[in-house]
C-alpha cells in the first residue's frame, strides 16, 4: 500500500522538489564561489596566482595603500557624480512621461537603446568622441578647429558614458512611482498657496521617495562596479575598483587582494539594496492618511513662514 503523507510532509516534499534544483544550482555556482571569495580575502597570496592556506589580513591592509585608496575614492566620486547626474536627468523625464499621453511609445524609446549591446553603445561614444571621431571631424570641417581635440580617455568621458549607459535604470523606476502619484495633490498644494516648484519639492518628492531610492540603487550599484566603461573610454587616471579587481586576478595574480576588493563591492551593493528595500517597505506602511496629513502640515508651515516674513 502506498504510504499516505500528511499534508505538512507533502508540502515539504513538493516545495523541495520544485525549488531545490534551483537551490542547488545557486549554491554551486553562486554561494560557493562567493564564499570562496570571502575565504580567499583572508588568505595569503600564492606566488603564481592562487592562495596559500594561511590566515592573514594582508589583503585588507593593502587596500589602504595610497595608490589603491586613490582608486577607491575616485570610484566613489565618479559613481556619485554619474548617479546624481542620471537621477537629475531622470526626474523631469519620469515626470514628463507620467504626464504624457504617449507613455507606451516613450517607454519604448527609452528602452530601445538599452536593448543594444552595451559594448556597441560604448563603441558608439568612442567613434563620436575620439580624436578622429565624429565631433572632431565635424568641427574641423566647419573650420572651428584645425586639429582634433582629445575628448576621450578622461574622467569626464567616463562619467558621460556611464550616465548614457545607466540612465534608463534611473528613468524607469522614477516613471513608475511618479505615474502612481496622485497629481491632484499638486493642485491641492497650488490651491493652498505653494508655487509649482514648491509643490513638486514639498509634496511630490516625499511621495516618490521609494522611486528615488530605487533609481539611486539601480544606477549606483552597476556604476560602482563598472569595468568596461573606464577600461574603454577612460584614461590612465580613470581606473575604478572593477578594473583593479580584474587586474589583480589576471595580471598581478594577487587573488586575495582581488577578493578583498570584491568583498568591498559586494558589501556596498548589499547595503544599498537593503536600504532600498527598507525605504520601499516604510513607504508602503505609510497610509494615505499620513500622506494627507503631512501635506497639510507642510503647507500650513509654509504659510506661516510666508506670513511671518511679511
Amino acid at each position: 500500500m502506498k504510504k499516505v503523507l500528511k499534508p505538512r510532509e507533502r508540502e515539504q516534499l513538493l516545495g523541495t522538489t520544485y525549488a531545490f534544483p534551483m537551490g542547488i544550482w545557486f549554491t554551486l555556482f553562486f554561494t560557493i564561489p562567493l564564499s570562496i571569495i570571502v575565504l580567499y580575502s583572508f588568505l595569503k597570496r600564492g606566488l603564481y596566482g592562487g592562495v596559500e592556506w594561511e590566515f592573514t589580513l594582508d589583503a585588507y591592509r593593502q587596500m589602504f595603500n595610497p595608490s589603491f585608496a586613490k582608486v577607491v575614492i575616485r570610484t566613489l566620486w565618479i559613481s556619485i557624480v554619474a548617479t546624481l547626474g542620471s537621477i537629475l536627468i531622470a526626474i523631469p523625464c519620469g515626470y514628463a512621461m507620467a504626464k504624457s499621453k504617449y507613455q507606451t511609445i516613450l517607454l519604448f524609446l527609452i528602452i530601445i537603446p538599452f536593448w543594444t549591446n552595451s559594448l556597441i553603445r560604448i563603441y558608439a561614444w568612442i567613434s563620436i568622441l575620439s580624436t578622429e571621431g565624429f565631433i572632431n571631424t565635424l568641427l574641423i570641417k566647419m573650420g572651428i578647429l584645425t586639429e582634433g581635440v582629445q575628448l576621450i580617455y578622461n574622467n569626464g568621458a567616463v562619467v558621460l558614458v556611464l550616465i548614457y549607459m545607466y540612465l534608463p535604470f534611473a528613468i524607469l523606476p522614477l516613471f513608475t512611482t511618479i505615474d502612481k502619484f496622485d497629481f491632484a495633490l499638486l493642485d491641492a498644494a497650488r490651491d493652498l498657496g505653494a508655487t509649482k516648484l514648491e509643490a513638486i519639492v514639498k509634496v511630490m518628492f516625499p511621495n516618490i521617495k521609494s522611486g528615488l531610492s530605487t533609481a539611486f540603487i539601480f544606477t549606483f550599484i552597476p556604476i560602482f562596479g563598472a569595468y568596461t566603461v573606464p577600461l574603454l573610454v577612460g584614461g590612465k587616471d580613470s581606473t575604478m575598483i572593477g578594473n583593479i579587481i580584474v587586474d589583480q586576478v589576471s595580471k598581478t595574480r594577487n587573488w586575495p587582494l582581488a577578493s578583498a576588493f570584491s568583498m568591498v563591492l559586494t558589501l556596498i551593493s548589499l547595503v544599498g539594496v537593503f536600504w532600498m528595500l527598507y525605504n520601499g517597505k516604510r513607504e508602503q506602511q505609510q497610509t494615505k492618511k499620513t500622506t494627507q496629513q503631512s501635506l497639510e502640515l507642510n503647507i500650513r508651515r509654509h504659510h506661516l513662514r510666508k506670513v511671518n516674513s511679511k
Binding site: F30, I37, A226, Y227, V246, V249, T266
Partner: peptide, 22 residues
Amino acid sequence: ITTISYLPMVLPEVIIGISMLI
C-alpha cells in the same frame, strides 16, 4: 533559496564573473 535567488541580480557583474572564475 528566496534570498539567494535575488542576489546575483543586484551584485555588480564583475563580482559574479570573478567569483566564478576563481
